[in-house]
Amino acid sequence: MKDDMDSESKLSQELLALVAREGMVEPENLVMEAKLADLDIISADFIMILMAIEEEYGAYIPVDNELADLETVGDLLAVATKKIIEHQQEKPA
């Protein structure tokens, strides 16, 4: 159980770095409560973030309702983490 928590927290840190890089946002502004719109993360940035997730984790995330409802950085990380874990369970390494 603790291992799972550790790996999720590690994933979360990796994803924060990924979102900062692909979304062209200063990492210090990327706090969980920050609104994506306030960070100027628009449709094209979103596609870049999802592309990077596919490249690094192999998970293809289509734009569905779960994604359309995202407001904050925390929301984005929660959905991305869930989809990556689902993908890893479907296709064990």
């Binding site: 596609i47 999802l50 592309m51 293809y60 289509p62 569905d64 309702n65």
Partner: peptide, 21 residues
């Protein structure tokens, strides 16, 4: 098109709550 992420990995379901592309 695939990289734009507007295509569904399963079935196309216009207007349906569970649609995803």
């Amino acid at each position: 098109w695939e990289t734009m992420r507007v295509m569904t990995p399963d079935l196309c379901r216009p207007f349906s709550k569970d649609r995803n592309g």
